[in-house]
Design a protein around this nucleic acid. Structure first.
Lengths: 193, 193
DNA sequence: GCGTAAGTTGTACGGTCGTACCAGTTTTCT
DNA sequence: AGAAAACTGGTACGACCGTACAACTTACGC
């Protein structure tokens, strides 16, 4: 009854996933420009023809990989938010937790920049921003702010700008101040401290 | 005495400049990945071999082009700041002027993302950020704030994040609020309103 | 059991690429 | 004037690319 060998379909699904993850690794490491069928195949340890079998074109592979990235990011962050929700932490502490959690991944910015050129990636990028905004909103709610005085997207912009500078090798000093200033502005209207 | 024909050297210099500008146009339009000797040569209307004659490699051409971009950006913004300095405008108005001036150029983000991979571009990216920070500082000074309470780089991060979302096709609503909140935080310590 | 569809993979084609090279021209220097 | 240096531009080479395709293996309905 037990299956030592996986069925062919199972192997196929696992392979497809491996290809996507390999692609994502390449994007993070070397950018979208470093992604080729051959490079992905080698990274995923599958034959060259597999990448063209599972994905009808390189564009589709890239798009699916970036979609997977956003999905994984969403899972990671919603898990963080859920962990926060019970705790009644002070706002300042929540802001710090997020700052610590968000080690920027170059793939994020590859997505944005690539979306500028490929219409098909635009909705993925939009979805990513909305996801982050939703997370920021949830974080604010976890801090007791139900109607933030400034748009949660501002946090996304600040974080993305911060992360972009980080991956470019330029550490921004004093970003924490800005984050806290924004946080204070968002919470001010309600009076929550 | 008058020279109808430019000397060969003058023509050469003009060509080199034309190549750089063509390269920059390509970067803005199609990203770093779309830059090739052949594409640049066609865009600049020079023979293929010219691009290899004036620049010893594609990397060097790319680097010089992005350096030129930062330089032009610096000139544009310092001009704006100088125009501001005499006027004693209210801070809010200054913030609005900058927001209006900064139509984001994709080349900016190509620079950051590319700097993540090429060490030689890192100092260009760093220079770019410092330049923007200096401009932000000057803008604050023009508003009467000599020692801002938050690091001027925070403005750069927010603007860059905003611009990044813009070029990705995602308009951020309510960024103005965030900008003004940051501005208020920066000016608060001194008491200037 | 056997045909047919789905899965798998090695190979090859046509194209673009960076760059080297070289023959030819113009300028500059002595 | 004549040699050396700088500039111009056409062409070619080897590498890598996306993708098509055919040969082969496995799974499954009947």
């Amino acid at each position: 009854m037990t299956r030592a060998e996986p069925t062919r379909q199972q192997r196929g699904e696992r392979r497809q996933q491996a290809i996507l993850e390999a692609c994502l690794r390449l994007i993070s490491k070397g950018g979208v420009g470093s992604v080729s069928h051959r490079a992905v195949a080698e990274e995923a340890d599958v034959p060259l023809a597999s990448t063209t079998y599972y994905f009808s074109s390189l564009d589709e592979l890239l798009e699916d990989a970036l979609r997977l990235f956003v999905e994984e990011e969403a899972q990671r962050l919603t898990a963080l938010v859920e962990r926060l929700e019970g705790q009644e932490l002070p706002p300042v502490e929540i802001a710090r937790l997020f700052q610590a959690e968000l080690e920027p991944d170059a793939a994020q910015f590859e997505l944005y920049v690539e979306a500028a050129r490929r219409p098909s990636l635009r909705k993925v990028a939009r979805g990513s921003i909305e996801m982050y905004a939703t997370v920021a909103e949830a974080a604010l709610r976890a801090a007791g702010v139900d109607e933030p005085a400034i748009n949660p997207r501002a946090f996304v912009a600040l974080f993305d700008g911060y992360g972009l500078h980080r991956v470019a090798g330029c550490d921004d000093q004093g970003l924490e101040d800005a984050l806290l200033a924004l946080w204070a502005a968002a919470t001010r209207a309600i009076g929550t401290r």
